[in-house]
Amino acid sequence: MKSGSNLEKVLSSGHFAVTAELGPPKSCDPEVVEKKAEILKGFADAVNITDNQTAIVRTSSIATGVIVARKGLEPVVQMTCRDRNRIAIQSDLLGAAALGIKNLLCLTGDHQSCGNHPQARGVFDLDAIQLIDMVRRMRDEKKFQCGEEMSVEPRFFIGAAANPFADPFEFQVIRLAKKVTAGAEFIQTQLIYNVEKFARWMKMVREMGLHEKTYILAGVGPIKSAGAARYMKNKVAGMDVPGEIVERLQAASDPKAEGIKLCLDIIEQVRAIEGVAGIHIMAIEWESAVPEIAERAGLLPRPQID
């Protein structure tokens, strides 16, 4: 056990894991976080707390993670390289560990031009792979990035993201291998709507034996309407939403119900792919969909491991 987190225990004991996502509010209202945590509790092994996702200012991921943990739900704190240099990142990670955070997802981060402060100076002192490497050394070698030693090390279960739909396709698998070498113990993928392409990607992952070195959680999520699907297809960088998906939602009499049905279909298909160790449900600003999805996908009750 690297961290002793619930997520690590669930995965290492061979259970099919379920993680969800909880976006901090664009204000400092803890009640918003508590309400979302109450909805998700019991339906996921851990929940990702986004770090100013899409470069929009929100309550910090660490603070939100602590509020979520108080509610009895385990957080996966996301940390990006966009807003902090190696000094700030290490400092925040020591603080997060001191506050009891055990799971960390390391990301490069969306570019600041995508968000609500496009005038900001980006940092990008490190990239995601260098961040993973730094966090692993902090934990396993008790060393800061500069090489100095520390007395008590932060013990994180280290995660990273992967996007099977980004280009160059082959290089994205090489990049996953680099993340695993750097120390990524679990991977959460981009939202999957093109299952065929994801399956091809997983085949390459298996050929490189990466599924045996890291736990791969397939990213899924319900879409509320054909309009939302079209927006993701055309406007969101790194997404691959096939035309049939838009059409299926367009044709539905109850698009929300169809969106959930679609998500369940995708879960069933990705579960059948060798090397998929769990799913990551991203129901952004639609947390209430998660219990229904987990229930209908037959993923309940979540394992209790001591």
Binding site: C81, R82, T108, G109, D110, H111, S113, C114, G122, F124, D127, A128, I129, Q130, A161, A162, N163, F165, A166, D167, P168, F171, Q172, R175, K178, Q190, A237, G238
Partner: peptide, 26 residues
């Protein structure tokens, strides 16, 4: 690279273009 990544590309690279702007080559 818009993020000066040294182990790139990020997940926003599609069709040879950067996530920041379709006018920017990745």
């Amino acid at each position: 690279c818009s993020k000066s990544m040294l182990n790139g590309p990020c997940g926003g690279s599609q069709g040879g273009k950067c996530e920041v702007d379709p006018e920017i080559d990745c």
